[in-house]
């Protein structure tokens, strides 16, 4: 049965190779298109500042014990007082921050561009593969596999009798879609590889609300117990010197 299945060489010439070549070419095309559409965005000073405030406040929290109590207290007041502290967010402002982010047309535009350059070619190629090559057994891998691989390798063929080591054309498309990253990084250079997973990570970063982390940082700072570490250092220095002299 499975051993009897002989693949026509025409399938190799007209399905397997064209499919791979088209996938590579589309990947390269996508790279250049996205490069064309990339707009250098000017970051909002307020957001940059908020990020920096958070870093500095975190430093203060982590290193609090290394500065004298007076300095620590003045810094804490500077960060978290209820009038104009850097970490203090007025109540009304907290809510519309996100709305404002969505209403910013530039941001939406950017996201659209990213989406377009990612989704459109994918749907098009998928439709193309489906239309022309549906149901083809395009290749055979030279080792046997267990039944579990059937959904991965034989997408589009609903025959349970075909040996799992045969790859359907649609599955070949998927394998190419996810497996060509290494090739792209060779062709386009290390960082330029169009990485879908990375893009998705960036997407999920959108919608992050800085005011929330400001508030969290403020709470963290408020409960820090300041215990000056320096008096301990005198004893430690003594111990170090004793060892050194001996």
């Amino acid at each position: 049965m499975a051993e009897d299945l002989v693949l026509d060489t025409a399938i190799r010439d007209w399905v397997l190779i064209p499919l791979s070549v088209v996938m590579v070419l589309i990947g390269i095309l996508r790279y250049f298109v996205s490069k064309l559409m990339r707009s250098s965005q000017v970051p909002d000073p307020k957001i940059v500042k908020e990020g920096q405030v958070i870093v500095r406040a975190r430093n203060l929290r982590a290193g609090a014990n290394f500065i004298p109590p007076k300095s620590f207290r003045s810094r804490r007041v500077y960060f978290s007082n209820e009038e104009n502290g850097l970490l203090f967010v007025p109540k009304g402002q907290a809510q519309n921050a996100q709305a404002q982010m969505f209403s910013d047309p530039n941001m939406a535009m950017d996201m659209m561009k990213k989406n377009l350059s990612m989704i459109i070619p994918q749907t098009l190629t998928f439709a193309w593969v489906n239309f022309f090559f549906s149901g083809f057994v395009a290749a055979k891998i030279p080792f046997p596999l267990t039944q579990r691989f059937r959904s991965m390798l034989q997408n589009g063929i609903d025959l349970s009798t075909v040996d799992v080591s045969y790859v359907s054309s649609r599955s070949w498309y998927f394998l190419n879609l996810f497996g060509l990253r290494g090739l792209f990084s060779l062709i386009l250079g290390e960082e330029n590889a169009t990485d879908d997973t990375q893009r998705m990570m960036q997407m999920s970063g959108f919608g992050f609300d800085p005011t929330k982390s400001l508030g969290a940082e403020k709470d963290g700072l408020d409960i820090v117990q300041h215990e000056w570490a320096l008096p301990k250092f005198e004893h430690r220095a003594e111990a170090v010197l004793k060892k050194l002299i001996r």
Partner: peptide
């Protein structure tokens, strides 16, 4: 007094190799 403490911490962090900190003490 604070300065002395910080000289001491310098000594601790450098393992007593810093001449300036020793003189500072």
């Amino acid at each position: 007094q604070t300065a002395k403490k910080y000289y001491a911490s310098t000594i601790d962090l450098t393992g007593g190799k810093n001449t300036r900190a020793l003189l500072g003490i």
